[in-house]
Simulated assay, not measured.
Amino acid sequence: MRSLPVGRGRRMFATVAVLAAVAAGLAGCGDDPSDSSSESSPAPTASADSALADKVPDAIKADGKILVGTDSSYAPSEFLAEDGKTIQGFDVDLFTAVAQKLGLKAEFQTADFDAIIPGIGSGKYEVGVSSFTINAERKKTVDMVSYFNAGTQWATKKGNPEKLDIDNACGKKIAVQQGTVQVDDITARSKKCTDAGKKAITIDQYQGQDQATAAVVSGKDAATLADSPVAAYAVEQTNGQLELLGDIYEAAPYGYVLKKDQAEFAQAVADAVKALIADGSYKTILEKWGVEAGAITDPAVNP
């Protein structure tokens, strides 16, 4: 998962919710999110497009809803509100509107990030919406519809007490969320270290990005790398305990994840995003969350 720069004017959420998330991360524990259903936050209402709705597979539209697998630990993309059950974020609002264009109601279900794509293949979920970076490896097994641009950003303790250089993190302890493209990123960086005769990077993988962020706040790890909206949001929500480190790099699009045998449906999803761009709803949703810098103009299937 990766993202582009974002505006810094997004609305702040209550500190108590952030501290609760940090506390959970410091404890290194928590309930397994798999198979956990939650409510999603209200989103702008979009009118259904009958032509697009006709392209929805019968098996999906039979009950009028679409089951969405999402890892709700990745603020501001998808995360739990203060009540601990309502899923909110720009991914939630945007796909809710996409589903409405298709004549459907989106029903979000919290899941482990690395279990979502297998869940799409097995039919457990009908779509995956969780800041998935579109890449060649994922496109081998699923179709992906682009809707947002993304890049990677690092964050460290305020003042960078370990004097960390992201291009030379050899011997440092770095936090990442498991199953993300940042794992591949930091693994490659560690190999460069050992190839040069330096100490390997200690890669601490966490179930949720909130836990990775908490590990940096506590001093357990020197830094974390994540999607840039996520890194920027973490800096804001930890009340200045963290700061961004280095520049954003390796831009790539986020994609909705669908089964391979639903080409017409995938195109309908892309066309629904185009419709939201055309009517201004897309811009309104991104601006609500302060992530409008990642907006795209040309959603497509498997770009």
Rank of each mutant, 00 (worst) to 15 (best):
Y206W: 13
A226R: 08
L225E: 12
K140L: 12
Q207V: 06
Q153W: 03
Q205F: 08
D114W: 05
E137W: 11
L19A: 09
V257E: 09
D165T: 13
I87S: 13
V68C: 07
Q182R: 03
Q267P: 04
S3R: 05
P57S: 10
T133C: 01
E250P: 04
W289I: 10
Q205D: 10
A20K: 14
A212P: 03
V230R: 08
A196K: 09
A59D: 08
A59P: 02
D112T: 09
D271M: 03
T224C: 00
A53Q: 00
L164M: 14
V92K: 09
S228M: 11
Q177K: 06
R10E: 13
V273N: 06
D32S: 06
Y125M: 02
D71G: 07
D165H: 03
N239S: 10
E82A: 15
T15C: 14
T70A: 12
I116E: 07
L26A: 12
F113M: 03
V235A: 06
N149A: 11
T156A: 14
E162N: 12
G84Y: 04
D32E: 03
Q205K: 15
A231P: 01
K163Q: 14
K65H: 08
P303V: 02
L286C: 00
A115I: 04
A278D: 15
D49A: 09
I87R: 12
V18T: 11
G28R: 02
V142N: 09
G28V: 05
K192N: 12
A106F: 11
Y249Q: 10
G151N: 03
N160R: 06
K274T: 11
C193H: 01
E107C: 01
D49W: 04
F132N: 00
A14I: 14
G28Q: 03
I201D: 09
D271E: 10
E126Q: 14
S146G: 06
F132K: 00
A48W: 01
D185A: 15
V68Y: 04
F148I: 01
K198R: 06
S131T: 00
E287K: 15
V145F: 02
K157F: 02
V68Q: 01
F132W: 05
Q88M: 05
K158Q: 08
V273Y: 15
E250Y: 08
Y254S: 00
L225D: 06
D261T: 00
I186K: 09
S38P: 02
A21L: 09
A293W: 05
V269P: 02
N149E: 10
Y206C: 11
G290H: 07
A20Q: 09
A251H: 13
K283R: 15
P42L: 09
K101G: 04
I134T: 08
